[in-house]
Measured scan of single mutants.
Amino acid sequence: EPLWIRPDAPSRCTWQLGRPASESPHHHTAPAKSPKILPDILKKIGDTPMVRINKIGKKFGLKCELLAKCEFFNAGGSVKDRISLRMIEDAERDGTLKPGDTIIEPTSGNTGIGLALAAAVRGYRCIIVMPEKMSSEKVDVLRALGAEIVRTPTNARFDSPESHVGVAWRLKNEIPNSHILDQYRNASNPLAHYDTTADEILQQCDGKLDMLVASVGTGGTITGIARKLKEKCPGCRIIGVDPEGSILAEPEELNQTEQTTYEVEGIGYDFIPTVLDRTVVDKWFKSNDEEAFTFARMLIAQEGLLCGGSAGSTVAVAVKAAQELQEGQRCVVILPDSVRNYMTKFLSDRWMLQKGFLKEEDLTEKKPWWWHLRVQELGLSAPLTVLPTITCGHTIEILREKGFDQAPVVDEAGVILGMVTLGNMLSSLLAGKVQPSDQVGKVIYKQFKQIRLTDTLGRLSHILEMDHFALVVHEQIQYHSTGKSSQRQMVFGVVTAIDLLNFVAAQERDQK
């Protein structure tokens, strides 16, 4: 057995438009009618409502009807409940999964919650491996369901041993009777949507819809739904939504950006999952974080739909894509998950301010006199920076000697690579993860907040409520011999709460 199987392995699926269902090699399930009293909570997966979006479509000038398939009504709160249950049931049916076995899954959280929910009911041990950027709410729900959680670096490539995929496979090879159901490759993922989600949409719309818009992560949702719609409703256009920084969209030119990270969760990847059939997507749109969270908040405030950030991405694209539809036509959007997962993220004004998705003037509360002053007023001194090749031991000596707790790590040209902190280095040394002679590049981390000289002290204040420091950066445009230009970030300084307090105190003292 291989040590790991690539999540982007070539698909062996034989589905073709027009091929009889009787030739399918898979076990198919028909939607079942729910009894009045459910035998367990797993029976509350599927049969989610279709809700008309009344205000947002009109606000953006849509002539067509805009409908939302509300997947956050599933038992675990997301569309991923469907595939989690289906993968477990299919693994039980073919004898792969037996009582007492362990389920391991690399996930952005929602599939993990679905699997942990099913594992709690069915009696399996469950280990979820997820990147650090995923919300604390997801972690809390997983723990409450009895799952064990392993976190991995957000910026690790999918084929790196440190990625959530790599760590999951390492655990599988170490733990007896453990299984990775593997949402990236498992046919049960798109089949769950082909058999149930798509049929529900067709039934709820009486077979009449002209466009379907869905955000894409593993691709199982859009693949399964689109294949069924292509068979039953061939005139329906399928629109895929991919965040900026991901590479799922086609044509490839759409993916060209210097951005590699994004805040919206559960969609987009740096590889093409095996289950994603991009041939059934008629057109791709890219979405960005700001519009995703703005539209998610709009869905909550104006439509009462308590959905997550990827739902915002989907609707932001839908109001663009559906401009081509006329009166009497219908566009369906998939709202994948609930706001429950993001209470401390985009639902929080403070978080939105820190990330730059909300401006101070958007909030009406009274601010102190210094709130709208610029960061450049602080008069920061030149920063202490270190090269990635310097040793951890030497870096600790320098920081202690100069009285700093942290320093930016830059390359020879001064471009920011990340940050090192005294606390992080000492804990890594004590844990045996690094040696004093190791290069400081081994303990770089990139989960820090950046701020510009033109940003306000109010925004800085919000950042420092949650973080010990902020890195002050400025952009530099560099022209190359080819005539092309590129933008790079340079370090201007490091600012802490002490710097802000000293500035405010000094100004008030001078005024007296």
Rank of each mutant, 00 (worst) to 15 (best):
I238Q: 05
I238C: 05
I238W: 05
I239F: 08
G240M: 00
G240D: 03
V241Q: 08
P243M: 08
P243G: 03
E244S: 09
E244N: 10
G245M: 00
G245K: 01
G245T: 03
G245D: 02
S246F: 01
S246E: 03
I247C: 05
L248N: 00
A249P: 05
P251L: 07
P251G: 08
E252F: 06
E252D: 14
E253Y: 07
E253V: 14
E253A: 11
L254G: 02
N255F: 03
N255T: 00
Q256L: 13
T257M: 11
T257F: 09
T257N: 14
Q259A: 04
Q259P: 14
T260A: 07
T260S: 14
T261H: 12
T261I: 07
Y262M: 01
Y262P: 05
E263F: 07
V264Y: 01
E265Y: 00
G266H: 01
G266E: 01
I267R: 00
I267N: 02
Y269N: 05
F271R: 00
F271V: 01
I272H: 05
I272Y: 07
I272K: 07
I272T: 08
P273L: 00
P273S: 03
T274P: 04
T274K: 05
L276N: 01
L276D: 01
D277I: 03
D277M: 01
D277F: 01
R278Q: 05
R278Y: 05
T279G: 10
V280Y: 11
V281R: 04
V281E: 05
V281L: 15
D282S: 15
K283Y: 10
W284F: 02
W284I: 01
W284L: 00
K286R: 03
K286E: 07
S287G: 11
N288Q: 14
E290N: 12
E291V: 15
E291S: 13
A292W: 02
F293G: 02
F293T: 00
F293R: 02
A296G: 07
A296D: 03
R297M: 01
L299S: 08
I300M: 08
I300Q: 04
A301M: 14
E303F: 03
E303N: 02
G304W: 00
G304D: 00
L305T: 00
L306K: 00
L306Y: 04
L306C: 01
C307N: 03
C307H: 06
C307S: 11
G308L: 00
G309C: 02
G309P: 03
G309D: 01
G312L: 01
G312A: 00
G312Y: 01
T314W: 05
T314K: 09
V315L: 11
A316M: 05
A316Q: 13
A316S: 06
A316I: 11
V317R: 08
V317G: 10
A318D: 03
K320L: 11
K320Q: 14
K320A: 07
K320I: 09
K320W: 03
A321H: 15
A321I: 04
Q323P: 05
E324L: 03
E324R: 04
L325G: 03
Q326D: 13
E327I: 05
E327S: 09
G328S: 13
Q329T: 09
R330C: 15
C331G: 07
C331T: 01
V332N: 00
V332C: 14
V332K: 00
L335I: 04
P336K: 00
D337V: 00
S338P: 08
V339A: 09
R340T: 04
R340H: 02
N341I: 01
Y342K: 01
M343F: 06
K345F: 00
K345L: 02
K345Y: 00
K345T: 06
F346Q: 04
F346I: 08
S348P: 09
S348H: 11
S348R: 11
S348T: 14
D349P: 06
D349L: 09
D349V: 07
D349I: 05
M352L: 09
M352S: 02
M352G: 00
L353R: 09
K355M: 12
K355I: 03
G356K: 07
F357H: 06
E360M: 13
E360R: 12
E361G: 13
D362M: 10
D362Q: 11
D362W: 11
L363K: 10
L363S: 10
T364R: 10
T364G: 11
K366N: 14
K367T: 11
K367Y: 09
K367P: 12
P368C: 08
P368W: 07
P368E: 10
W370D: 01
W371Y: 10
L373N: 10
L373R: 08
R374N: 15
Q376S: 09
Q376H: 12
Q376N: 12
E377G: 10
E377D: 11
L378S: 06
L378T: 02
L378H: 06
G379Q: 12
G379N: 12
L380R: 15
L380D: 10
S381E: 13
A382G: 12
L384G: 08
T385K: 08
T385E: 08
L387F: 15
P388M: 03
T389L: 12
T389H: 13
I390F: 02
I390L: 14
C392L: 15
C392F: 15
C392H: 04
G393H: 11
G393Y: 04
G393D: 07
H394S: 06
T395N: 09
I396L: 14
E397N: 15
E397V: 10
E397K: 14
I398N: 13
I398S: 14
R400G: 10
E401H: 14
E401Y: 13
D405I: 09
D405Y: 07
Q406R: 03
A407K: 04
P408E: 02
V409K: 00
V409N: 01
V409A: 12
D411Q: 03
D411S: 13
A413G: 15
V415T: 15
V415D: 15
I416Y: 10
I416A: 10
I416R: 07
L417V: 15
G418I: 02
G418C: 09
G418L: 02
M419W: 13
M419Y: 14
V420G: 15
T421D: 07
T421K: 14
T421P: 14
L422V: 14
L422Y: 04
L422M: 12
N424E: 13
M425Y: 08
L426M: 14
S428C: 14
L429T: 08
L429G: 14
L430P: 13
A431K: 10
A431W: 09
A431V: 14
G432H: 14
K433Q: 14
Q435A: 14
Q435N: 12
Q435P: 12
D438P: 11
D438W: 12
Q439S: 09
Q439F: 15
V440D: 08
G441K: 11
G441A: 14
K442L: 15
K442R: 15
V443R: 10
I444N: 14
I444Q: 14
I444Y: 13
Y445H: 08
K446A: 06
Q447R: 14
Q447I: 12
K449Q: 11
Q450P: 04
Q450N: 12
I451H: 08
I451S: 05
I451N: 14
I451Y: 11
I451F: 15
D455Y: 10
D455C: 14
T456F: 14
L457E: 01
L457F: 12
R459A: 12
R459T: 12
L460N: 01
S461M: 15
S461K: 03
S461F: 15
H462P: 07
H462N: 05
I463Y: 14
I463A: 04
L464M: 11
L464I: 15
M466R: 09
M466G: 14
F469S: 13
F469G: 14
A470S: 15
A470N: 08
A470H: 07
A470P: 08
A470L: 14
L471R: 03
L471D: 03
V472M: 15
V473C: 11
V473E: 13
V473R: 10
V473F: 15
H474A: 06
H474T: 10
H474Y: 15
H474D: 13
E475Y: 09
Q476T: 12
Q476I: 15
Q476W: 03
I477M: 14
I477N: 15
Y479P: 04
H480R: 09
H480C: 13
S481Y: 09
S481E: 12
T482K: 05
G483F: 14
G483W: 13
G483S: 15
K484T: 04
S485P: 15
S485K: 04
S485V: 06
S485G: 07
S486H: 08
Q489R: 03
M490P: 14
V491T: 04
F492Q: 12
G493I: 14
G493S: 14
G493N: 11
V494D: 02
V495M: 15
V495C: 14
A497N: 12
A497K: 12
A497H: 02
I498A: 12
D499Q: 07
L500D: 00
L501H: 00
N502V: 11
F503D: 03
F503S: 07
F503A: 09
A505K: 07
A506S: 12
A506T: 15
A506Y: 08
Q507V: 13
Q507N: 15
Q507P: 10
Q507L: 09
E508V: 08
E508N: 11
R509C: 15
R509D: 12
R509M: 15
D510E: 13
K512Y: 03
